[in-house]
């Protein structure tokens, strides 16, 4: 039997909303577009301007000074060398640029949001379900609204990546600040600290490790999303994988996949070290 109930108009509502936003938020999308595009161009052109070998060495030295660990340093040297060797250098540079730009935007928005939701329970009650929703929605779905806003291409990819990778930055910041022992914030209050002093002098320094954990996750999520975003024209290592799928070239697909893994491991190790330092 067919119940003659009207269909709940989720799809049409979303479309109408997106149409509305595209029309009325043009200034915002244009601004985002400009920032993302300029950032990408700058990073990419800087990294491509020097010879890969120099960059490999610079990266290796940098990793050594950040981590002080021999294993990671050797891995960085060999891994990046391999990427260059198998001809994926420019793709890797693109991917890294995408990750850096997307992560920076996600952190710049995410950490303040996390701070606000740690301070205000009301904000947290609103933000939390949105974060849950964002994290459970399949990653591909983010790609769709990105297109009407920014069209196919790298800016759309960055937009989707920012949305996808921001939740941990918010969540961990919020958690880190809320985890600061009550006696310490109470002590700051007792000595007459105002909200800002309390935040800067006590809460943020003590939440640092947790916040860095969130940043680490944001970077990792950004990396995974940047690969998926190849479907809407992000290019980079993800683009190589995407092309290999379309042309049925398992070898080329694997090479690009290994390149992504190498980047992921280096980023993770370095960030982990930064988070747990002192």
């Amino acid at each position: 039997m067919n119940l003659d109930l009207p269909r709940v108009p989720i799809g049409p509502t979303i479309e109408a909303t997106i149409d509305f936003l595209v029309e009325h938020l043009a200034f915002a999308t244009r601004a985002f577009s400009a920032v993302a595009d300029q950032g990408l161009r700058f990073l990419e052109s800087t990294m491509m301007a020097v010879h890969p070998i120099i960059l490999v060495v610079v990266a290796t030295v940098l990793v050594f000074f950040l981590t002080r660990k021999r294993g990671v340093t050797v891995f960085t040297f060999l891994g990046l060398g391999l990427i260059w060797n198998i001809g994926l250098w420019s793709a890797a540079v693109t991917t890294l640029s995408l990750v850096v730009v997307a992560t920076l935007i996600a952190i710049i928005i995410g950490i303040p949001l996390g701070i606000i939701s740690a301070i205000s329970d009301t904000v947290y009650r609103i933000v939390r379900p949105i974060l849950d929703f964002m994290q459970t929605l399949p990653a591909f779905v983010y790609l769709i609204p990105a297109i009407p806003f920014f069209g196919l291409g790298r800016v759309a990819a960055i937009f989707a990546t920012v949305i996808f990778s921001m939740p941990p930055a918010i969540r961990f910041t919020n958690l880190g600040i809320r985890q600061v022992p009550k006696e310490l914030t109470e002590c700051a209050d007792a000595f007459g600290a105002d909200r800002w002093q309390k935040l800067i002098k006590i809460q943020l320094p003590l939440a640092k490790t947790t916040i860095m954990g969130g940043v680490n996750q944001t970077v990792m999520l950004a990396l995974s999303m940047v690969v998926i975003a190849a479907m809407i024209g992000a290019g980079g290592l993800g683009g190589e994988v995407w092309r290999a799928i379309q042309r049925l070239q398992p070898g080329a697909g694997f090479e690009a996949g290994i390149g992504i893994v190498i980047l992921a491991i280096i980023l993770d190790r370095v960030l982990h070290q930064l988070a747990t330092k002192d």
């Binding site: 006696e183 310490l184 109470e186 002590c187 700051a188 007792a190 000595f191 007459g192 006590i202 003590l206």
Partner: peptide, 28 residues
């Protein structure tokens, strides 16, 4: 008023672990 009038000492010390002893004492 709190800054001027009160000094407080806590049961579990409530020292700031990320600050040196002297920086803790300087806090107020």
């Amino acid at each position: 008023f709190r800054r001027r009038k009160f000094g407080m000492v806590f049961q579990h010390f409530a020292l700031f672990p990320h600050r040196k002893v002297v920086d803790n004492v300087e806090f107020g």
